[in-house]
């Protein structure tokens, strides 16, 4: 095993791997944000009075949690590609291959998958808010928007935080799957390095360590955030 392969600059692949790590982090962050948006919308649908919306919410979480992420990535990558080709051809008369933007596709796929897990977390968090709180807000004449902003969201966010930490960890790890369609994140950078140096173990071990660092550091961040969010809450 030749660790000088991992040196910085032209001599080694350290900077390529670091750039991959940044890409992993960026994609995971966007996907996580998208997941929270989707999760909030579908949690609202699942808690709705209308059975049609509840059904839609159940359908989404069942399908996305029951189907492998890799399959979803293949669907969006190849499906998005042929849709772009079709659009390019019919709108601009463009003939030829249109490469689908893997960065956007990655965020979309991982975001949709994170959204399904976030839906359940947010739904549980909303249900954990004592009913009396909402009744009290209503009693002093708060409108629905104000209730949402002042009572529901701050408390649900606090309840959801620990489980959202898990969702973030899933999201971070799932970004590695985007490498199969060519996005240069940690895994892809490692694969390129492994291919040109014939030292696959060195490079995949580096990828392993980078992921370990990313999850450990962000885990600490979430523990801090939890402490901060619960600073005003009485504890035993």
């Amino acid at each position: 095993m030749d660790l000088t392969q991992l040196a910085w600059g032209d001599a080694g692949w350290g900077d390529e791997l670091a750039r991959g790590a940044v890409m992993t982090f960026v994609v995971a962050t966007f996907a996580f944000a998208l997941g929270i948006l989707i999760g909030s919308a579908f949690a609202a649908a699942k808690l709705s009075r209308f059975w049609g919306l509840r059904l839609l919410g159940d359908f989404y979480t069942t399908v996305v949690r029951g189907v492998p992420e890799l399959l979803i990535i293949f669907l969006v990558f190849f499906g998005g590609g042929s849709m772009l080709r079709y659009l390019g051809n019919s709108l601009f008369g463009f003939e030829g291959y249109v490469e689908p933007p893997v960065f956007v596709i990655g965020i979309l796929c991982i975001g949709v998958s994170a959204g399904a897990y976030a839906t359940e977390v947010i739904r549980a968090a909303v249900l954990a808010i004592p009913k009396g709180q909402i009744e009290a807000a209503r009693a002093i004449g708060m409108g629905p928007t104000l209730r949402l902003r002042r009572i529901l969201i701050p408390q649900a966010a606090r309840f959801a935080l620990p489980s959202m930490g898990n969702v973030w960890q899933y999201t971070l790890k799932d970004t590695s799957l985007i490498s199969v369609v060519g996005l240069v994140e940690i895994m892809r950078a490692a694969a390129v390095g492994a291919g040109s140096t014939k030292e696959p173990f060195t490079f995949y071990l580096a990828a392993f360590v980078l992921f370990l660092l990313l999850t450990s550091l962000s885990n600490r961040g979430f523990i801090r955030a939890e402490k901060w969010a619960n600073r005003g809450v009485r504890s035993q």
């Binding site: 694969a191 173990f201 450990s216």
Partner: peptide, 19 residues
């Protein structure tokens, strides 16, 4: 639990080739 399964799989399958 902190690392993706894909990395673990590649480490075993491709990584073993180095040794």
């Amino acid at each position: 639990r902190s690392t993706p399964l894909l990395v673990q799989m590649f480490l075993i399958y491709y990584g073993s080739g180095q040794f």
